[in-house]
Nucleic acid binder design. Sequence first.
DNA 1: AAAATTGTTGCCAGC
DNA 2: CAACAATTTT
Length: 789
Amino acid sequence: MKPTSNFLSHLNPSQRRAVEHFCGPLLVVAGAGSGKTRALTYRIANLILQHKVDPENILAVTFTNKAAREMKERIQKLFAEQMAMQEYGEKYDLLPEFDQGKLRSRVYRTVIKDMWCGTFHSLFSRILRLDIDKYVDENGRKWEKNFSIFDDSDAQSLVKEIVTKQMNLDDKKFDPKSVRYAIGNAKNQGFSPKEFAIEQPNYRGKIIAEVYSAYQDKLAGNNALDFDDLILIPTRLFQQNEKVLDYWHRKFHHILVDEYQDTNRTQYEIIRLLSTNDEGKKSWNWDNRSTFVVGDADQSIYSFRQADFTILLGFQDEFGDGLEDDNTRTMVKLEENYRSCENILEVANQLIENNTQRIDKILKPTRAAGEEICLFKADDEVVEADFVINQIRKLEEENPDLDWGSFSILYRTNAQSRPFEDLLVKYQVPYNVVGGFRFYDRKEIKDILAYLKAIQNPSDAVNIQRIINTPRRGIGKSTIDTLVRASQELGTNLWEILNDETSVNTLAGRAAKSVNNFAGIIKKWQAEIETMPVTELVAGIIEDSGYVQDLHTQGTDEAEDRIQNIQALYNAVSEFQEENQENEESVTLQKFLEKTSLSSDLDKLKEGDAAVSLMTLHASKGLEFPVVFLVGLEQGLFPNYRSMQDPAALEEERRLCYVGITRAQERLFISHARERRLYGSREPAMRSQFLDELPEDLVANHHQTRQGYVKISTGSLPKRSDRNAFTSNTQSDVIQNWQVGDAVIHKTFGEGEITHVFDAGSKTSVAIKFTNLGTKIIDPRVAQLQKIN
DNA sequence: AAAATTGTTGCCAGC
DNA sequence: CAACAATTTT
């Protein structure tokens, strides 16, 4: 199939450069709303159509499952459109539905199915399902292909058990949560337990390293991995086994990574390994290969899980030609914004300029100015919610272009959703809360999944213990203790004991019978796992567990609710089975379990069901809405109090705000409250410092009255210089005199020369042209900047 | 062994 | 205030 001539005509020149780039490394710096998804999908289509790349040689990494699904759908559509013209001589949209369906499913089978497109976690767990048996870690720990994936709460209880029971530490001093966090950080930076131990200078660090090692023992003992292992283990496997690395290196000719600014060291390392086969730069061979990354340092908002945007900033040095912006052939910037009205962009641009650590980049508007941004001051969080919901209802009514799905409410923390939900319910506005509590995290769902996991992977003692007496079947704490102790003493896992009738029969009579019964259930279904359709398997297990029956006898409303949820889980299984069968994919229990472990809540956000979306700013990344409400702009909340002392963390909060603003297409509302409930008591709240960084001439001030709200002013805030005189009395003492032409050295960016000085009252910014990195605008009070000579 | 009560801590973000 | 853990009661 050959592409029709208009294939690339929907692209602007920069997008086109990105799409048509064939071999070698390329960094695409893609500002918000600049059409990077389009660039990615067209690039993949172009690789296949133009360069005859086999889809199975493509690896595309996205940030969420939803993004992966959308990307696949868009590519599918592109292909179907091409084929429609070729085979029917007709536009795809004009074909009868039957032919459309036929085309789509053929494209799926011949193109989409073979492509590896997904999140880091899903892609690399897939590799582990094939190759983990070839891996042995530094302590001889091994895993089998049917490993379980432990979620955060599983992981946390393991750590807690180690800290309190095994090592007898004070869990005040070694709070399991922070220990677990430290272990996660180590994994995300690529450290094994031993390597981590060496790095530790103090007692506390050494203890944490010990916990890390014991934690890995426990995981291996359960034949289980945590989320971070899903990336770290394949990385280590690739490092230790040339053959395995070489196989995957040869398989993936073209590697694409989206949201590259949010990759961490381990993820970077695995991309590096796959791209280069771990060879030195001189022997890299880019023939028929490419590594194509897309990102925007200004939207890096996941440093709390060790994402590091300097990886993106370093791409040019690591992979690229390292030439300056104007001359480089390994970087493309997408700066035209197609999403937002000009006013919104202007606000975003001005805000983000307050950050020092950036690539010089500005979003250029392509759309009309649009309406003013509306800033609303509320008395408290309830008034704030009232304002938002009323605006939504009013706009929806007045504007035929808008439906409920056009609106989103974005907040810093999940806990803020409550008052908005209350009012949406009151006015019967359909809405969707994204994130927070996942369906798969409900107790009854986790219980049923524990059965499934135990059957899939009997070494998984954590999940066995979860369900051995759920529902009650007379296996009490002391019985379980005896069994667990026995397994520890024999150095085997719990299942080996349960599965051995003679061992079990040494227990007191009643308990022995119950345990044998339980073991029988697990064994029975284990035997069916390869052959029985997943839906039947799950239905049978639910039945045999007696779980639903037990809920029935309870008879409470809550129990009825749980039964409903279990029904919904079953529905999810059958949907899963149907979908996969349609696409001629194999359907296994393992795949379903994987999906439940790795799916995020964002996945439920379906297009087409018209409902107001409520979510955190983090969850909003990559999405867009005609109308956006950015709420709770208060000191301590946003920016979050934990970030306020640390300049780097504060800059991340600012990027988060930037992400929020740039979600808006037509209208942007920003609000804050003067008082807010916190831990139950009312606390006064100050307006966020970010509000003072927005251009006042584009922002209209509003305040509530009994009748609703009135517009007070446009641009009536105190003049910027006055405000700064008031607010910035803390660190302005060490003002240096920066002048155009000064040679300076920056801690991370190296040497450069000042090309502009921006003086606004007490705040000074300087633009510096760095030798290797191009021009950046920097706040000399925050950055470590020194004059040289 | 399970249920009821009191106490404690936490709201930062999520694959 | 609410979720969760630890503790006491039946």
